[in-house]
């Protein structure tokens, strides 16, 4: 099969994947994970760069037991739906916990983790995941 992780693609998305840099519609507030000049929700062209916060709440989650290519060795792993303060939702890997510890509504914090690697010789992909909060609020 074709390569799963192409360097230019991964590179292009790095700011979103590392820091949750998004493009937010100044009209309706919808966020986009890609650079855009048209809001996907309201079609406004007033879109500006923004950053999602590092904290979010868990809405629901599941476990991937049948993994896709490049994730074989990580299975089983948790993925969850999280919601930020502004209502933006994101599906992300949930790490450093067992499914039993997760309850809807718990607070999670963003970390950057190794997402996958393209075999022994290919690219290593890093990106956001969420985990139960260990840092202090300040």
């Amino acid at each position: 099969m074709h390569a799963v992780f192409r360097p230019p693609v991964n590179w292009r998305h790095r700011r979103f994947r590392y820091r949750l840099v998004v493009w937010r519609c100044l009209n309706c507030g919808a966020v986009h994970h890609y650079a855009t000049s048209i809001c996907r929700r309201c079609r406004s062209n007033r879109v500006a760069e923004d950053k999602l916060p590092d904290r979010a709440r868990l809405i629901t989650y599941t476990v991937v037991k049948n993994p896709p290519v490049a994730f074989e060795k990580q299975a089983p792993y948790i993925v969850g739906l999280v919601e930020f303060e502004d209502g933006t939702r994101l599906v992300a890997g949930i790490t450093d916990c067992d499914p039993e510890e997760l309850k809807p509504g718990i607070e999670l914090e963003k970390v950057v983790r190794k997402i996958a690697e393209d075999g022994e010789s290919g690219l290593i992909v890093y990106g956001y995941k969420f985990r139960p909060v260990i840092t202090r609020s300040h």
Partner: peptide, 20 residues
């Protein structure tokens, strides 16, 4: 370290606390 952690992720998290 877990499968999703390596020197990059560990360094980044430690450094984020230093910056904080």
């Amino acid at each position: 370290n877990s499968l999703d952690e390596d020197t990059v992720t560990i360094a980044a998290e430690a450094a984020s606390y230093a910056i904080a």
